[in-house]
C-alpha cells in the first residue's frame, strides 16, 4: 500500500508543470525516504531529478518500495483538475496497475477521485555523483527565466561565462548578438532578490536555450535558482521545493567539435 497526502497540493501541480514538457513518460520511485523521479528527455542530453522527502508530507505511507510508471501529460491533466488550495492524496494498492489521485477542497465539501492506469516504463537510471563545482550562481529564478526567454529571441544557444566580474549570458543569431551581465549583489533587503556567485575557477559553457527555457517552467516553485557549472560537465539547474526537496535539471554542454 502506498499513500501520500500533501496539504499544499499546489506544489504537486507546479511540479508536474515543471517536468511534463521535458519528459513524456517517467517512473515515480516510492520508498520510505520519499517520492522521487529521474528521467531523461527523448534526446538523452537533458535529465530531471525530483525528490520530495517523506517527512514533507502530512501523511506518507510506503509499505514496500514501489515504482509507478506514468504518462506525465495525463498525470498533469488530472492534477489540473485539483484546485490550488486542495489537499492532494496519491495512493496505489500493491499489485494493482492503477493509481488514484484524490483532491479535497479546503472546506472538505468537495472530494474528487481520479484514477489513472499505470504504465511499464523501462528507463535507464543514471548515477549522478554529488560533485564540487567550479562555479555556483544563486539568483532570482524570475530573473534567470527572463534572461533565457530574452536570449532565445536572439539565438538558440547561450554561452554562460562566470568570471570574478560576475556571470555573463551571451547569445548570437541572424539578427545580431546579446550580452547580459549579472553582478554579485548580496546587499539587497530581501534574500530572495540576491545574486550570489561562488567561483573557484572561471568557467564558460555553451547550452541549447530550448532546454534552459524548458527548465524555467519550474520558476513558480522557488524564488531562487541555483546554477552549478564545471568545465566540460553538464550544468545543474536546481529549484528547491519548499521544505520538501528539489527539482534538479541536468544539461550536457555543447562541445566544440
Amino acid at each position: 500500500m502506498f499513500e501520500l497526502r500533501l496539504v499544499q497540493g499546489s506544489l504537486l501541480k507546479k511540479v508536474l508543470e515543471s517536468i511534463k514538457d521535458l519528459v513524456n513518460d517517467a517512473n515515480f520511485d516510492c520508498s520510505s525516504t520519499g517520492f522521487s523521479l529521474q528521467a531523461m528527455d527523448s534526446s538523452h542530453v537533458a535529465l530531471v531529478a525530483l525528490l520530495l522527502r517523506s517527512e514533507g508530507f502530512e501523511h506518507y505511507r510506503c509499505d514496500r518500495n514501489l515504482t509507478m510508471g506514468m504518462n506525465l501529460a495525463n498525470m498533469a491533466k488530472m492534477l489540473k483538475c485539483a484546485g490550488n488550495d486542495d489537499i492532494i492524496t496519491i495512493k496505489a494498492d500493491d499489485g494493482t496497475d492503477t493509481v488514484t489521485f484524490m483532491f479535497e477542497s479546503p472546506s472538505q465539501d468537495k472530494i474528487s477521485d481520479f484514477e489513472m492506469k499505470l504504465m511499464d516504463i523501462d528507463s535507464e537510471h543514471l548515477g549522478i555523483p554529488e560533485a564540487e563545482y567550479e562555479a555556483i550562481i544563486r539568483m532570482p529564478s524570475a530573473e534567470f527565466a527572463r534572461i533565457c526567454r530574452d536570449l532565445s529571441s536572439i539565438g538558440d544557444t547561450v554561452v554562460i561565462s562566470v568570471t570574478k566580474e560576475g556571470v555573463r549570458f551571451s547569445a548570437r543569431g541572424d539578427i545580431g548578438a546579446a550580452n547580459i551581465v549579472c553582478r554579485q549583489n548580496a546587499t539587497v533587503d530581501k534574500p530572495e532578490d540576491a545574486t550570489i556567485i561562488e567561483m573557484q575557477e572561471p568557467v564558460t559553457l555553451t547550452f541549447a536555450l530550448r532546454y534552459m527555457n524548458s527548465f524555467t517552467k519550474a520558476t513558480p516553485l522557488a524564488e531562487q535558482v541555483t546554477i552549478s557549472m564545471s568545465s566540460d560537465l553538464p550544468v545543474v539547474v536546481e529549484y528547491k521545493v519548499a521544505g520538501m526537496g528539489y527539482i534538479r535539471y541536468y544539461l550536457a554542454p555543447k562541445i566544440e567539435e
Binding site: L126, A252, E256
Partner: peptide
Amino acid sequence: KRTQFPLKLYFVVT
C-alpha cells in the same frame, strides 16, 4: 560545429 553528448557519457548507468 558543436555537439551535445548524451548524459550517460558523463554519468554512470546504474
